[in-house]
Amino acid sequence: MVKVELKHVSNRYILQNVNLTVEDGELLALLGPSGAGKTTLLNVIAGTTDYEGSVLFDGVSVDDKPASKRNVGYVLQELALFPHLNVFSNIAYGLRIRNMPLTEVERRVDELLALMKIEHLRGRYPSELSGGEGQRVALARALAISPSILLLDEPLNNLDYSIRRYLRREIRRIQRQLNVTTLFVTHDVEEAEEVGDRVAVIVGGRIRQTGNFEEVSSNPADEEVASVLGFQNVWECSKCRRIWGELYEVECKGVKVVVSCEGGAAKRIAIPAREVYIYGDEPQGPQLNTYKGTVKEILFPSPSTAKVKVDVGGNMLVAELSMEIFKSLNLWVGKEIFLKLKLKSIRVYT
């Protein structure tokens, strides 16, 4: 397999001095909001867009090679299956272009159909496939050419939640089995966490942080990375007052929050939505970082989670709850509730 490096890659429109390494056989999740340059980055590696800087496969520059000579397996966001070819011919496309003998093409395609568990789709046309089936065919087509690197552009978008979860594991399984170097683009934190060996966060055309997921999520480099990672609650704050040791009290629109930080002078704090605790009645115990708020909006991003937007003295706070807890709380818009922020979960930016 192949190690892929990007050195000082810039692109007229979005990318700015990107340096990134995908190790041999690794699955790197590229996480970023829409418009961050994720797809452009894949296009640079695939050679389908112009760029400055250098792309290296195993230390050898491929900058002069056109897309057709780079041997990259690219699953486009829209799949782009050939509508005039059936599943077999779609998967065989790259092999036929390479003039592989027909018996060998058949053997290879059957192998991939088995690997993807889609033998029954062999003779169907793309218009006769479901989203998840199309996804597997596109993946098989990209893998057929034994690519140096596999590029997956938000491959699980537009699929039902349960299929997403399933395919995510499938992609992981297949990637491990073939040990193919993979770059997996997503805007979904959960996906990045589950699929990636490592994660790279891209915002505004720059790679902001790279590392394993725990590392990055427990210590986001800046507030934009924090917001990409699901710290939806970023509050501006003023009046930083030292209480004791590394404990400071900051004020956000009149709401006092105790935070722990080195050096003080906090300008913004970020609170992960999953670390906000909601109570129907006033909670027992110490009242540190406990507030009264009003429920403003309730959303259901997936069948198993609820997002509750709460107004806390003019600051908006998003709390993410599991469905079980959400149901037990019996919340409605306009209800007054109590919430608590865990001291350890609050990130401070100076």
Binding site: S68, K69, L76, A80, F82, P83, I97
Partner: peptide, 15 residues
């Protein structure tokens, strides 16, 4: 996008 997909699969402009 289909053209781009074909290119990455190794197709020359003629192909």
């Amino acid at each position: 996008r289909l053209v781009r997909a074909a290119e990455t699969l190794g197709a020359s402009p003629k192909n």
